[in-house]
Amino acid sequence: MLRWLIVVVLALLVFNGLRPWLEKLGLGRLPGDLRWRWRGRPWSLPIASTLLLSLIAMAIGELF
């Protein structure tokens, strides 16, 4: 359980840092990614993209 939580947190950090580049690839706009505007500022909660990135990271981790 703790390993999965660490992978999700790392995926969130990677997604946040690489968001402009990843949005060009379509990540951040998947069904399940929440976007809204509150007090004039855009907010996003990339649930589906985070799960996808964490699954990819786990698959790479299993290979090595």
Rank of each mutant, 00 (worst) to 15 (best):
L2K: 12
L2W: 01
R3H: 11
W4G: 06
W4E: 14
W4K: 11
W4F: 15
W4Q: 14
L5R: 03
L5W: 00
L5I: 08
L5E: 10
I6E: 08
I6T: 04
V7C: 10
V7P: 00
V7T: 14
V7Q: 09
V7H: 11
V8L: 15
V8C: 02
V8G: 01
V9N: 04
A11F: 05
A11P: 00
A11R: 05
L12T: 02
L12F: 07
L12R: 10
L13R: 07
L13I: 14
V14R: 01
V14M: 12
V14A: 15
F15Y: 13
N16C: 06
G17C: 05
G17E: 08
L18W: 11
L18H: 00
R19Q: 15
R19T: 10
R19S: 15
L22V: 10
L22Q: 06
E23R: 08
E23V: 06
K24M: 03
L25T: 13
L25D: 00
L25V: 13
G26I: 12
L27H: 08
G28W: 03
R29M: 09
L30G: 07
P31A: 03
G32L: 02
G32F: 00
G32A: 06
D33W: 01
D33K: 00
D33I: 00
L34V: 14
R35N: 08
W36T: 13
W36Q: 04
W36E: 09
R37W: 04
G40A: 12
G40R: 14
G40L: 11
G40Y: 13
G40F: 12
R41S: 03
S44G: 09
S44I: 02
S44D: 02
L45S: 02
L45H: 03
L45T: 02
L45F: 14
P46H: 02
I47D: 00
A48Q: 08
A48F: 05
S49T: 13
T50E: 05
L51C: 01
L51R: 07
L52Y: 01
L53A: 01
L53T: 06
L55T: 01
A57L: 15
A57N: 11
A59S: 13
A59E: 09
I60G: 02
I60T: 12
L63N: 01
F64N: 04
F64Y: 09
F64D: 00
